[in-house]
């Protein structure tokens, strides 16, 4: 498979971006990481991917279906991809605004390495969603709540999951 795309690329002189992302996309859609589905919201735009994440079992996000947007910069894989939550989630590592930004160490420009694969990024993201990293929180108030009163946080996180990620918006049906 890799070989074949390699040949095609030399004929069409595809850029690194296209080639790498086609390959990664092909692998990810056929064999997605647990709890995830990947698709392109716009078939002709390889820079934007939708990741549909099912809330990890026995977490307050269980039963929810969260859509993330993965944006590949034009010099991918030399520059890190951007990852953001489209669905609201009550989590200390996801910014509670219209950006839904996630602060993952490996996605910082000076820590990113071109050999890192998107599948690694996604697995890392799922890990953080399962086990929030309180020391590196974007939402200090949520982190504070988790530390002080975990029950209250769980209650609110469940409430948000029900309210925003209950899978009524079509995209999530595939995920569950």
């Amino acid at each position: 498979m890799a070989k074949r795309i390699g040949k095609v690329s030399s004929i069409l002189s595809l850029t690194h971006l296209k080639l790498t992302s086609i390959q990664e996309l092909a692998e990810l859609t056929s064999k997605p990481p647990p709890l995830m589905k990947i698709n392109l919201p716009n078939e002709s735009d390889l820079h934007k991917w939708h990741i549909i994440l099912s809330g990890p079992p026995s977490s307050p996000f269980e039963g929810g279906s969260f859509t993330l947007l993965l944006t590949l910069p034009k010099d991918y894989p030399f520059k890190p991809p951007l990852l953001s939550f489209q669905t609201k989630i009550y989590h200390p590592n996801v910014s509670n605004d219209d950006k839904g930004a996630m602060c993952l160490g490996i996605l910082k420009p000076d820590e990113w390495k071109p050999a890192i694969k998107i599948v690694d990024v996604l697995e890392f993201m799922a890990q953080v969603i399962r086990e929030p990293n309180l020391d590196d929180a974007v939402e200090q108030s949520i982190a504070h709540e988790m530390r002080e009163d975990r029950k209250a946080w769980e209650k609110k996180a469940k409430e948000w999951t029900r309210k925003y990620a209950s899978g009524k918006d079509g995209t999530s049906e595939n995920a569950t």
Partner: peptide
């Protein structure tokens, strides 16, 4: 990096032995 290659592609590695094609290395 580019997930492609062939037997006639020039490659480069530092002492660590992590080898990539010259194009990718240079672009990096």
């Amino acid at each position: 990096i580019c997930m492609s290659g062939d037997s006639d592609v020039e490659t480069y590695a530092l002492k660590c032995g992590h080898r990539y094609c010259v194009d990718c290395y240079t672009q990096y």
